[in-house]
Design a binder for these strands. Structure first.
Lengths: 328, 328
DNA sequence: CTGAAAGCGCTAACAC
DNA sequence: GTGTTAGCGCTTTCAG
């Protein structure tokens, strides 16, 4: 690869001048500018990004840390982020943390060594303290970290209430909830939403809440037990789509008809939800937009632009599938 | 962040010595080595990866270029690659090409500017010529590029034959094929496998092959038409799982029972296949292993190790679900 | 065994 | 307007 020196020689100017036209900084005569441009074209010169990074202490690179890219929610987020980043000449590094703090920290270490400009992270283990000491711009997605850290997600409480209300509007009388992991704020909020909505009507019964842990097999198990114990349950709000699919399977295995005997609604709106048979009714998050917004916020942070709002809770929408009855 | 100079001062040695202990290169007295190590610990020093890259002309970074990370096949590949890469202190850059040559080339441009050490790519547009001029180590995944470029995938022809044979073994007499895009070698090979297997028994009939383009909606349409025209079709081999799901939907929509009236088998073995109702029977690729192997090969390439085999076609396995009948 | 110094390719003062 | 030069932080000859 050619260097700025080669260009300078070819154009018969100094490297400083070449640098100036490269960065359109400082004054440079139109004619010499042309000479330089010609030389660049002739030599097919491309500036060396690493040398530039060394000087500027920034790399035009950002990182995305997710628990596991294999989880269907994240690829769409990643795609959105990569879309806005590549349009701004940024490069995206992908990291899988498996929800382990140790791995997250290790990634941060590398990020600093590589002058990575910022990171978008989905985490429930990292605290503001960890992050502060890294001194690297951060945006949180899906899981809240701190008031000072831009956060993009949805209103889980309201989404959950919406789910419950919809089940009721289709005639469900006894609505159970398969919740996600205890330590996940997300899952907790969805549970709270479920509870609130039912408590308001004096219908809440904690026996109807079981933990599926966002896990397929576990969910199948606990759902079967629940339905055997309470055969009159006629609606289930699952903490996410993945579990909703599992719930449907469990119900069918027990000989229940969905939605005639049992209605099921999920949360997330991953593509999977529309591929199953029957298609899952769900509270859909605007997943792509979440990633998009997060990327924009990070860019603002990097550019030192003021952030007017730190908390971005985008709107969920009801996506009606075939696991719920027609509204009455 | 501290620099090597700080460490040198703290340890009262030269930067050269520090560099030597950092890289365990050259001779360095055990005592001074200890002094340096102490200084490093005391200052919590981490070498600057960018400065190192500038000198070494390599970045401990590799790139993965896929058509779209949102396609359920790729996250698992990405995960595998990231696993081996991060274990070797490499960082993974993620790129979405949307199968556009222009985007691929743009990514390569950036890779060179950033001294990216190698790339793993899924492409059907890039030719050896493009790649050669980039002079950057490459491994092809899922889609073959050239004999000189390490390639990891499965034997699509054999996999397809296996699919057809299995349908026959469960009693299917009239087997149709919903194929993938014409310009995709993959899809072509699967079609060839299907044809070969049937031709051997003089059962091939080109009227039973339609193009679903790896697209959900298209597949639903063409499948319905096909089944209306040939109501006696009792088995369908779909070119991938995604289309298989669509085929099942189409069949059910026409009032056919799966698998009683119509058996369906897919190809790929993405997780999705086991989440649908009924679960899709499929020819499963060892997706994670494919990514893993590709990563290992790229590392060898980067390290200048000799590659003994360029063509890696891993074994597919039959994954029996509920869209096919019991074997007789 | 260790240090001085050149240089990786680029940018930004600072002169002229 | 343009050139000279001192770094950015690191590695590696080359002396000693």
């Amino acid at each position: 690869m050619r260097t700025i020196k080669d260009v300078a020689q070819e154009a018969e100017v100094s490297v400083a001048t070449v640098s100036r036209v490269l960065n359109s900084s400082g004054y440079v005569n139109e004619d010499t500018r042309k000479k330089v441009l010609d030389a660049i074209k002739k030599l097919d010169y491309r500036p060396n990004a690493v040398a530039r990074s060394l000087f500027k202490k920034q790399s035009k690179t950002i990182a995305l840390i997710v628990p596991n890219i294999t989880n269907p929610f994240f690829p769409e987020v990643a795609r959105a982020i990569e879309d806005v980043m590549s349009s701004k000449e940024y490069t995206l590094i992908l990291c899988n943390s498996d929800d382990q703090e140790e791995k997250e920290n290790k990634y941060f270490e590398v990020m600093k060594q590589k002058y990575v400009d910022g990171v978008i992270i989905v985490t429930s283990t990292l605290t503001p303290k960890h992050i502060e000491k890294n001194g690297i711009p951060i945006v949180a997605v899906d899981r809240f970290i701190d008031k000072d850290i831009p956060y993009v997600s949805v209103d889980n409480v309201e989404g959950a209430r919406k789910a419950v209300r919809y089940l009721q509007s289709t005639g469900c009388q006894k609505i159970a909830h398969i919740r996600g992991p205890e330590n996940l704020l997300n899952a907790e909020q969805r549970f709270q939403g479920y509870r609130l909505e039912l408590q308001n009507k004096h219908l809440f019964n904690e026996d109807l809440v079981v933990n599926g842990n966002f896990n397929f097999t576990t969910t199948t198990e606990v759902t079967k037990q629940l339905l055997k114990k309470h055969p009159d349950i006629d609606g289930i709000f699952a903490g996410n789509d993945y579990m909703a699919v599992s719930v449907v399977k469990a119900a069918l295995a027990l000989g229940k008809r969905v939605p005639e005997d049992l209605s099921v609604i999920g949360f997330d709106g991953i593509n999977l939800a529309k591929l199953t048979n029957p298609e899952i009714t769900t509270i859909a998050q605007p997943i792509y937009q979440i990633g998009y917004k997060a990327a924009e916020l990070l860019l603002d942070l990097i550019d030192g632009k003021p952030i007017d709002t730190y908390n971005h809770e985008l709107k969920v929408t009801l996506s009606v599938g075939q696991t719920t009855k027609q509204m009455r």
